[in-house]
Simulated assay, not measured.
Amino acid sequence: MKPSNAGIYSRFLKRPMDFLLSLMAIIVASPTLLVVALLVRVKLGSPVLFKQQRPGLNEKIFMMYKFRTMTDARDENGNLLSDSVRLTKFGKFLRSTSVDELPELFNILRGDMSIVGPRPQLVRDMVFMTPEQRERHSVLPGLTGWAQVNGRNYITWEEKLHLDLQYVSNITFVGDWKIIFMTVAKVFKRDGISAVGMDTAEDFGIYLLRERKISKAQFSAAMEHSKRLMNC
């Protein structure tokens, strides 16, 4: 993984800023965190937190935390029902307001993530990326990022990854704060939460398969590779 275009800010100041801002945000948001945790427990059950492995800096796998937004509803064979069925009205509210993302503040505090950076995608998304696209992992993933304020899930995967690479190549203090303020505006407008016609974001591999950019054999091989990465 090649290093990003790192200046003084990204090398020495970005991490301390992340730590201080995430700590302050956790303290200020603690009443909200407690109330939401209680509501999730009552409305969606336990566990309150949704934990999932994601690729971080230099593709090191870490555990990302979010508030759960789906039930564990299953069919008669014990298989989980579709996302559209398990995503409740309350879960949709948490996603549309981005409240479900608040536990990621603890990931930032720990150093797994940054406030601004490419969003941490699924491990199974990473294995479908080209070597160039995977350069997005040369920096810490972010709670928000350049792609999130420029379309989020309303843009194609290729556009999203291109915007991530634009950010990686030009990380600045002013640029980060611009993204933070744009994110606040996006949250209030509730823009780009999911892809058009879908309740949740589409996996990169599913998108490539649907667009016939990869074969079923390539899809299956990549999925098996992602499983091995998560079990390492």
Rank of each mutant, 00 (worst) to 15 (best):
Q133T: 05
P120D: 07
K89E: 11
E224I: 00
R74P: 01
V187P: 04
L102D: 03
E132G: 01
F50I: 02
P118C: 03
S169Y: 06
D203K: 11
Q121K: 07
T71F: 00
T183K: 08
P16F: 08
P47D: 15
D100G: 04
K43A: 12
V127M: 11
P3H: 09
V35N: 04
M113Y: 13
V116Y: 13
K227E: 13
R11V: 03
K43P: 02
T71P: 03
L57E: 10
V184N: 06
I171H: 00
V42L: 15
F106R: 09
M70Q: 11
D199R: 01
I115V: 15
L165P: 01
F62R: 07
K66H: 03
Q121Y: 06
G192I: 04
M223I: 14
T32K: 01
Q52P: 08
I27S: 02
S169I: 00
I26R: 11
M113L: 12
D125M: 05
K51P: 05
T71L: 04
A217H: 08
K2W: 11
S194G: 10
G7K: 01
A201R: 13
S220F: 02
M63Y: 01
F50L: 09
E104C: 09
D164H: 05
G175H: 07
R54G: 02
M129W: 09
A37Y: 00
K186G: 11
W157V: 04
F173S: 04
T144E: 02
R86S: 06
L34G: 11
G197H: 06
V99H: 01
Q218S: 13
Y9A: 05
I206Q: 15
K51D: 10
L161W: 10
V187W: 00
D176S: 02
S114H: 10
T156R: 08
A25L: 06
F67Q: 08
R190E: 03
V174A: 14
R54K: 11
L34Q: 00
N153T: 01
K89V: 10
V127H: 14
D112Q: 09
